[in-house]
């Protein structure tokens, strides 16, 4: 048995299952690659809003792209499943998850609520412009989500970096579009590189055929 044994005796079955499944979910780097591409897509849209003036076709297209973000998000979930089933199934195995994890959804809603409250409070205090607070809370909220959903050291590092980047952008008072472009661009690149390295290492692991 692996090193999970000693921890296993101290955890509840639910916690063990959650931890092991999360580890398995992130072992091939595909979710990070998807997140990285999504972040770079958002950064690209923000770049359009920085470069082109309000009212231009490119600016409007960027707004439309931001509104349609759920589509590439759900598309990426489908794509990960397909890539795994088609190319990696011999290594990762097959699993059919239960439809909805209500606890996780409530945790995400809770974090979003706390971050939104903190932002409203900060704006009301008028210490910094709203755009700065929005950047800081996006960085901190995104970082927290990365840590909670990843539960692996590399996600903790990524989450901390995102929070620090958000706070830094808040303090240097850049515009909202520029700040989002830098934040999502940097984090997207980091996530993409990290995911590609993990995928490369994963595919180089010797595969054991059969059962």
């Amino acid at each position: 048995m692996n090193d999970a044994t000693p921890r296993f005796l101290e955890e509840s079955p639910d916690a063990i299952a959650g931890r092991l499944m999360q580890k398995a979910h992130n072992q091939d780097g595909l979710p990070e690659i998807a997140v990285g591409l999504m972040f770079l897509f958002v950064a690209g849209l923000q770049w359009l809003q920085v470069v082109f003036h309000q009212g231009s076709l490119a600016y409007k297209a960027a707004n439309l792209g931001l509104m349609l973000l759920p589509a590439p998000y759900f598309g990426s979930l489908w794509a990960i499943k397909m890539v795994r089933r088609k190319f990696l199934i011999a290594r990762v195995g097959y699993v059919e998850f239960k439809p909805v994890n209500k606890k996780r959804i409530w945790a995400v809603i809770g974090i979003a609520f706390v971050v939104a409250c903190a932002m409203v409070f900060a704006i009301a205090a008028k210490r910094l412009p709203p755009a700065s607070w929005l950047l800081a809370t996006t960085g901190i909220g995104g970082g927290l989500l990365a840590i909670l959903s990843g539960r692996l050291p590399r996600f903790v590092v990524g989450g901390v970096l995102m929070a620090v980047a958000g706070i830094f952008l808040c303090l240097i008072r850049v515009s909202l579009e520029m700040g989002f472009m830098i934040l999502f661009g940097a984090m997207g690149l980091l996530s993409l590189v990290s995911g590609c390295v993990v995928l490369l290492l994963f595919t180089r692991r010797p595969a054991e055929a059969g059962e």
């Binding site: 079955p13 299952a17 011999a90 990762v92 195995g93 097959y94 699993v95 059919e96 998850f97 239960k98």
Partner: peptide, 10 residues
């Protein structure tokens, strides 16, 4: 208990 079903490899 946390999934619908899984294969041996998983």
């Amino acid at each position: 208990a946390a999934v619908e079903e899984a294969d041996f490899q998983y």
